[in-house]
C-alpha cells in the first residue's frame, strides 16, 4: 500500500483539521464546541505523528507511541474539561464563554 498515497495527502488533511480546530476555538462561544475544536487540533497532530513515522522512520515506533499518549491525555483532558464546564454551568447557568469573564481587571 505504501507508495500509493503520498505523504502530502496526510499533511494536507492534518493541516486542514488543525486550522478548522483553531478557527472553531476562536469563533465558537459554546464551551463544548470549543472542547471539540481542541480535540480536532490534537487529532491533527496525531495524524502527523503517525504519517511521519511511517514515511520517514518505518523501523521505529516512537510516533505511534506518541499518538497513543496524546489520545490518553486527550481523554483525561476531556474529562477534566467537562467537569469544569459543568461547574461553570452551575455557577453561571450558561456555558457561553463570553459570560465567563469574571477574571479581569
Amino acid at each position: 500500500m505504501t507508495g500509493t498515497i503520498p505523504l502530502q495527502f496526510f499533511l494536507v488533511i492534518s493541516t486542514l483539521m488543525f486550522f478548522i480546530g483553531v478557527f472553531g476555538f476562536l469563533t465558537r462561544r459554546n464551551l463544548i464546541t470549543m472542547l471539540m475544536s481542541i480535540e480536532l487540533i490534537l487529532n491533527s497532530v496525531n495524524i502527523n505523528f503517525v504519517a511521519f513515522n511511517k514515511y520517514l522512520f518505518p523501523q521505529h515506533l516512537s510516533g505511534h507511541f506518541f499518538s497513543l499518549i496524546i489520545i490518553a491525555v486527550a481523554a483525561a483532558e476531556a474529562a477534566v474539561a467537562i467537569a469544569i464546564i459543568i461547574n461553570i454551568y452551575r455557577n453561571f447557568k450558561s456555558i457561553d464563554v463570553d459570560k465567563v469573564d469574571e477574571m479581569k481587571y
Binding site: L26, V97, V100, D101, K104
Partner: peptide, 17 residues
C-alpha cells in the same frame, strides 16, 4: 494597559495564536 486583561478566553487565545 489594564484592558489587556479582559477575562475573555478567546481573546487571549487569539493574541496567543
Amino acid at each position: 494597559i489594564r484592558n489587556l486583561q479582559s477575562g475573555k478566553v478567546q481573546q487571549y487565545a487569539y493574541v496567543f495564536i
